[in-house]
Computed example of a mutant assay.
Amino acid sequence: MFTGLVTTIGTLQLLSEQQVRVSCGAADLLADMAIGDSVAVDGVCLTVTELLPDGFVAAISPETISRTILRWSGGSRSVNLEPSLRVGSKLGGHFVTGHIDGVGYLEASVQTANAWEMSFQVPDSRVSRYIVPKGSIAVNGVSLTVAECNATGSWFKVAVIPHTYAETNLHDLQPGSPVNLEGDVLGKYVEKFLRLNGSVEQTDTEAVDEFETTYPMSDSITPSFLAEHGYL
């Protein structure tokens, strides 16, 4: 789990269809890193398989290659980096899983008095369905708020503050540049609940009845109820 608040920028090199190498100069990020850790690389959750003096090697899967912009990572390019969220850490962005939904493309980037207004085209319906006005979206792993979008979500605009623009690789984007997009995970659960409403199979109904018998719904959640169920 991540927050979409990028820690630093690194350089990614595609070693093979199974591995990437990421170099960075952030000593604090590397000092706390261990084999097996999860790191968001341009928003993609990757697992560290080897530690290097100036970075790390991570494994990638065919699904990751097909669903993200890693398939266009010929040579080397800058990437946004964020370590996984620790219990008790501040959640300043939004819940980002690191599981990319699809790819979008920068349409335009316009500097205003206090922000960069960036608009994107989203041809992939796996992403566009979760884009709503004032909703959250992760662009190359950066947590942003949708300022405007069309009815289908195939186009949206965000306002990027100067600090975020300068400290991430969003400043490298040119019109037509591909980006990794991840929709808000909360929207995905809402969509599934709505889709299943009224179409629960008998076996699922029995499971729901058993759950409600074990954990009956209450109009009020009291301190004693929370303590009884291990929350206090």
Score class of each variant (00 low, 15 high):
P62T: 12
D54G: 00
L106R: 13
L51T: 09
G135K: 05
L51N: 07
I65N: 07
T97V: 12
G36Y: 14
A59S: 15
V39N: 00
V132F: 05
I137T: 09
G104P: 02
G141V: 02
V44Y: 01
S109V: 14
V139Q: 02
S128F: 09
I60L: 11
L85R: 01
T97C: 07
Y105H: 14
S61H: 06
N114T: 11
A113K: 13
G55T: 10
R126Y: 10
V122W: 04
G102Y: 01
S73P: 06
G75F: 07
I137E: 01
N80D: 10
T97M: 12
T97Q: 15
D124K: 07
S61K: 06
L85Y: 06
A147T: 14
G141S: 08
S66W: 07
V139I: 15
P133S: 04
G92P: 12
D101N: 13
A113G: 11
S128L: 08
V122Y: 07
F120W: 12
S73D: 05
L81C: 08
P123H: 09
S78W: 10
E117V: 13
S119G: 11
R77D: 01
D124R: 08
L81D: 01
R77W: 01
A40Y: 03
S125R: 12
R77M: 04
A40E: 04
Y105R: 11
A147C: 14
V44K: 05
I100E: 11
A108I: 06
S89E: 15
V139R: 05
D32H: 13
W72A: 11
V57F: 00
K134I: 10
V110C: 09
A34S: 05
S136E: 05
L70D: 01
N140D: 15
S38P: 07
V110Y: 09
A31R: 14
I65H: 06
D54P: 00
D54K: 00
I131G: 07
G55M: 06
P62W: 09
V57R: 00
L144K: 08
R126T: 11
A108T: 15
P83G: 04
E50R: 15
G104S: 06
V139M: 07
E148D: 14
F95L: 12
V44R: 02
S78H: 15
E82V: 08
S136C: 12
L46P: 04
V57M: 05
S61A: 09
F120H: 09
I131T: 11
F56K: 01
A40I: 03
M118H: 11
Q121I: 03
I100C: 13
T47E: 00
I69R: 07
G92F: 13
E148T: 14
G93P: 01
D101S: 08
